[in-house]
């Protein structure tokens, strides 16, 4: 079970990453965050943005109906 879940399927870039970034900041290193996203743009950008900020992409699964589930492990500093 993830430590937190965030649904950004109603968000558009760049607010998708803003929402996820703020959520990641609220968690501790080692915690996992499950991100529900929709559309090609966040699917391309979010894993890269998270990795660029030092977080670990644990999994990325397509759920159908255009949504995907991204699981990140938090890394600070």
């Amino acid at each position: 079970m993830p430590h937190a879940v965030i649904d950004i399927t109603s968000q558009v870039c760049p607010m998708t990453w803003v929402r996820v970034k703020l959520k990641l900041e609220s968690l501790d290193t080692g915690d996992t965050l499950e991100v529900l996203l929709k559309g090609d743009e966040p699917l391309r950008n979010l894993p890269r943005n998270a990795a660029d900020d030092g977080h670990v992409v644990k999994s990325l699964d397509t759920l159908g109906d255009g949504t995907s589930k991204l699981v990140l492990e938090v890394r600070h500093g």
Binding site: P14, W17, V18, K21, L22, E25, S26, D52, D53
Partner: peptide, 10 residues
């Protein structure tokens, strides 16, 4: 747009 910056964030 500031929050997006790595040096700023929330």
């Amino acid at each position: 747009r500031q929050i997006l910056l790595r040096e700023v964030g929330g």
